[in-house]
Amino acid sequence: MFGADKGKADRLDGKDLVIGIVQARFNQDVTNTLAQACREELLAHGVAEKDIEHVLVPGALEVPVALQAMAEKGGYDALVALGCIIRGETYHFELVANESAAGVTRVALDYQLPIANAILTTEDMAQAVARQVDKGRDAAQVAIEMANLLEDIG
């Protein structure tokens, strides 16, 4: 079984990994905190600052196309999607949440490239704020672990 013989510390070794981050600006207070937590966690696990490329897009629906452009460019071991969608009074929440998630997944599968999806989908701002740091850290760990797993498999 791939990765079964490795300890968690080995799976979270970010040394020599190149990670791309796509951050939606909508609900920027939350997404900035997500990004900061993600970057700090990447650095803490050995990813070099020079090996982190961070781009901003308007909102969650634009995240997949930026991820796709990065995947096509190549050179990344993993990507991270960051955003925050908060339920409103209309169906728009479901549309944005579903379509952004589907786009992120499609890019990951089409390019066989790990993408940690940390586009928060919450009922209100309080839920988003409660999750912003942990989900940013989680995204970094997922990106590193999956990059290492795919390297082992490949």
Score class of each variant (00 low, 15 high):
residue 49 E to V: 09
residue 135 K to M: 08
residue 137 R to L: 10
residue 78 A to R: 02
residue 78 A to W: 10
residue 63 V to E: 02
residue 123 E to D: 14
residue 6 K to H: 01
residue 97 A to C: 06
residue 8 K to A: 15
residue 118 A to V: 03
residue 81 A to H: 02
residue 60 A to L: 11
residue 87 R to A: 05
residue 118 A to W: 05
residue 75 G to A: 12
residue 39 R to Y: 06
residue 123 E to M: 10
residue 2 F to D: 00
residue 145 E to Y: 07
residue 99 E to Q: 15
residue 130 A to E: 06
residue 7 G to R: 15
residue 111 Y to A: 10
residue 55 V to F: 13
residue 57 V to E: 10
residue 122 T to F: 08
residue 7 G to C: 12
residue 21 I to E: 12
residue 83 G to Y: 04
residue 101 A to S: 14
residue 81 A to W: 12
residue 94 E to G: 10
residue 149 L to K: 11
residue 105 T to E: 06
residue 86 I to F: 08
residue 41 E to L: 06
residue 75 G to F: 15
residue 48 A to Y: 01
residue 36 Q to A: 09
residue 4 A to G: 03
residue 97 A to G: 02
residue 101 A to P: 09
residue 6 K to A: 07
residue 120 L to M: 15
residue 110 D to M: 14
residue 120 L to N: 05
residue 5 D to L: 06
residue 77 D to W: 11
residue 126 A to W: 03
residue 71 A to S: 12
residue 4 A to H: 09
residue 50 K to N: 03
residue 20 G to P: 12
residue 87 R to D: 01
residue 113 L to T: 02
residue 1 M to S: 12
residue 72 E to V: 15
residue 66 A to N: 12
residue 19 I to R: 02
residue 6 K to I: 15
residue 123 E to R: 13
residue 109 L to I: 09
residue 104 V to T: 06
residue 101 A to M: 09
residue 133 V to K: 07
residue 119 I to T: 02
residue 1 M to E: 10
residue 136 G to C: 03
residue 7 G to W: 09
residue 57 V to K: 01
residue 1 M to L: 10
residue 30 V to N: 09
residue 90 T to H: 03
residue 4 A to F: 15
residue 98 N to K: 15
residue 50 K to V: 01
residue 114 P to M: 06
residue 24 A to V: 09
residue 48 A to T: 02
residue 137 R to C: 13
residue 12 L to K: 03
residue 37 A to T: 08
residue 43 L to S: 07
residue 152 D to F: 14
residue 114 P to C: 06
residue 13 D to S: 07
residue 82 L to F: 02
residue 51 D to C: 01
residue 133 V to S: 05
residue 76 Y to H: 07
residue 86 I to M: 13
residue 136 G to T: 07
residue 127 Q to H: 12
residue 121 T to K: 13
residue 26 F to G: 13
residue 15 K to N: 01
residue 75 G to V: 10
residue 55 V to G: 07
residue 55 V to D: 11
residue 6 K to M: 15
residue 43 L to T: 07
residue 1 M to F: 11
residue 57 V to G: 07
residue 43 L to M: 06
